[in-house]
């Protein structure tokens, strides 16, 4: 059985309940008090300690009739739990596994913080978590939280220096609960469940929207290309993927290995031959 997320961005109202629920359930530290001034999005990106991120896009343009049109696009981003996951393939310690629910999970007690998963994720999701520093300023901006954390450092903080990303609420799933973000979402923009069922629902939703004159596309419900396959967390979008900071052409990094090793072998062979000829004569 593989479970996943279907994030229908047409239903998102940008309330960020998912972000908050995720932080609370997983006891993730605050990101500090940041004001981007760009939009209502002050989270900006997924990180080692931010596992849901609501993107907020404001669009204004003059349409073909010369009318001013505007719209808000909101989308809750998350780890895609790829079928062929770059992070999973790259991890040299075996810390990253695929669990019984089909999710890509980092075992925090095995990871040694080499950071190779970070550069191997085609979606820029996973990141290293800074070491928890009670005297430092990184987590201290919310001073209330800090005093609490000083007394009771959370699991994630104790294991700072390791990689972090969405676990698809492994612990909640084992208890038979829905992931915290899906539970908290008031509009069912985040839907959790069996992937086959979710995909069916998503395709039907695209059709319903098109009947109503809204052109929508699915991102990751089927193969995204580049060797990655389908995404276990996929999205329904109403604009190009890039608008939501999703790659139009993601590529699974390991697909470049055969070419790399072959090129290295050819170079080594050529140089070995040259070296042998140079050293052959007295």
């Amino acid at each position: 059985m593989a479970n996943g997320f279907f994030t229908d961005t047409t239903l998102c109202i940008g309330c960020k309940a998912c972000e908050v629920a995720c932080k609370q359930w997983n006891e993730l530290p605050s990101d500090g008090f940041v004001f981007t001034g760009e939009s209502y999005d002050n989270t900006s990106e997924l990180s080692g300690t931010t596992w849901r991120h609501v993107a907020f896009v404001e669009q204004m343009a003059i349409d073909h009739q010369g009318e001013l049109q505007d719209r808000w696009l909101m989308s809750s981003d998350v780890c895609k739990h790829c079928t062929n996951a770059g992070c999973h393939e790259a991890c040299p310690t075996g810390a990253i596994i695929r669990n019984e629910f089909g999710a890509v999970f980092i075992q925090p007690d095995v990871c040694n913080g080499c950071g190779y998963c970070v550069v191997s994720c085609p979606f820029g999701v996973v990141d290293l978590i800074e070491k928890f520093d009670p005297d430092g300023t990184h987590y201290n901006l919310a001073s209330l939280a800090t005093s609490r954390l000083d007394a009771r450092a959370t699991a994630v903080q104790q294991s700072g220096g390791v990689a972090g990303k969405c676990t698809l609420c492994y612990d909640r799933q084992r208890l038979g609960f829905v992931p915290a973000c899906a539970k908290a979402c008031p509009t069912e923009s985040i839907q959790f469940g069996d992937l086959d069922e979710l995909r069916e629902r998503a395709h039907a939703r695209v059709e319903r929207l098109s009947e109503r004159g809204v052109s929508a596309q699915l991102y990751g419900a089927d193969d995204v290309g580049g060797g990655i396959g389908a995404l276990n967390a996929f999205f329904l979008l109403t604009d190009r993927p890039e608008t939501y900071n999703l790659p139009a052409q993601p590529v699974l990094p390991s697909t470049r290995q055969p070419a790399g090793y072959t090129a290295a072998a050819v170079a080594a062979l050529g140089l070995a031959l040259a070296g042998w000829m140079i050293f052959r004569n007295a």
């Binding site: 760009e38 343009a61 950071g115 970070v118 550069v119 999701v125 052109s215 604009d239 608008t243």
Partner: peptide, 28 residues
């Protein structure tokens, strides 16, 4: 909901506030 994607030039790649998609290596 108006579809604004058609109002843009085709080859004009949108970005998310020019923010990076990928995480940079931590290697020093």
């Amino acid at each position: 909901m108006p579809d604004l994607s058609e109002c843009r030039e085709r080859d004009d790649v949108p970005t998310y506030y020019e923010r990076p998609l990928l995480k940079a290596p931590h290697w020093e």
